[in-house]
Design a protein around this nucleic acid. Sequence first.
DNA 1: TCAAAAGTGTTCGTCCTACACCCATGA
DNA 2: TCATGGGTGTAGGACGAACACTTTTGA
Lengths: 239, 239
Amino acid sequence: MRGYDKYAFEPFAVTVDLAVLTLRAGALHALLVERGQEPYAGRWALPGGFVRPQESAEDAARRELAEETGLADVSGLHLEQLRTYSDPGRDPRMRVVSVAFAALLPDPPEPHGGGDAAQARWLPYPGPRPLAFDHDRILADAHERVGAKLEYTCLATAFCPPEFTLGELRQVYETVWGTALDRPNFRRKVLATPGFVEPVTGAARLTGGRGKPAALYRAGGATALHPPLLRPATEGRPS
Amino acid sequence: MRGYDKYAFEPFAVTVDLAVLTLRAGALHALLVERGQEPYAGRWALPGGFVRPQESAEDAARRELAEETGLADVSGLHLEQLRTYSDPGRDPRMRVVSVAFAALLPDPPEPHGGGDAAQARWLPYPGPRPLAFDHDRILADAHERVGAKLEYTCLATAFCPPEFTLGELRQVYETVWGTALDRPNFRRKVLATPGFVEPVTGAARLTGGRGKPAALYRAGGATALHPPLLRPATEGRPS
DNA sequence: TCAAAAGTGTTCGTCCTACACCCATGA
DNA sequence: TCATGGGTGTAGGACGAACACTTTTGA
């Protein structure tokens, strides 16, 4: 059925939706914008926008990410395609196919409204439901995907600043998974994985308050985690 | 940037591309169609087609799958969204955004050409490269995804007929991964996972030739695999 | 009687878990 | 000096890899 006919296709609008996640004060937050117009006026929604004629969906997502967060350089941030949502009725006005992305940020800056009138804010996950459109599902899918990828990739460092302590890294896991981890075992596991983190030879940083100062690490070159760091006894992960 | 304006969007064509994989004679095969027209006339390509105005990408993928394979009932087959390919130059004629799917089939029927003039055939993976468009990459992504999901889901049964032996199931893993597995350990691992397979109480089936007849099993209700069945020592899996 | 594939048993090492314990710091 | 978090040590158990062995069939 690859019978292309230049006039056989129906026009679709193609957008990107961004599930931008970060950690603030030990809690998972998502970047949300408040809609000012119908449909779903007054509802919160994921940031996003149209894909332009000369850019890929990935380009559009990174452009929107920069606009929404106000960050000057988003080139190093983790951005990952989630999946595409294409139900015919997902936008009541017209046929919109949306490519959803998950983005992970360390050190969240306060968002300014971008070039748009709608206010953008970091809200604690899962946020004020229901969100507009099918954004509840997209956000939940993003959380699930990130949680799963923490197990077998080095993704957790994407939530951390350039230099971080193992305690901060562990807090990423504990916050996203919602479970406590054994600190000594976590430490050994991370350090035993070549390329996950590498030590910073500078002075140890304070832990923000009481306690022994922790050693600093930066992200290593590895992307995969062998063997994986499995979630403790949380049965029933979807496929 | 959720500033919808009914006339602000550029029209895109939205298609689905299918990486249909199966096992024939112990080798991984992909369903490919030969293009009859430019561009890429004479090249092999993945089956696919346009998403219609009133259907989702998933609906379109299943419809195309039925058309291309000639199967009357594709409702039970495994169909999974891979990712969306949206590079502006991926189709030289116009802007086409393609949602790619991976489909897994047991018992491959000979494909007839569907409603199209192009011939469709099962060809041994990875097939006659280069394929048309960016289909080499889509097919490789599908293989990688399927190989990874064998580790932590019960996906392997999607390659098997309704009733199968553990030897057949093991051959799925060995073929997709390209590695040999220890038969006794594989058996124990599968049987120790509740809901992966369940025994069929009928008589044992012959193994097709010599050897002791094997017990028959059918797929169980589980989808996830805990703990995972990791690939042996194949480092460097992408994220 | 031999080859081939299914199925069972067993050993050994490795990794994970769980804790106990010490260290360094701020209040 | 006490609470807090970082870092090290260790015993026990679970799991997996490797391989020997038996069983049942077709040639």
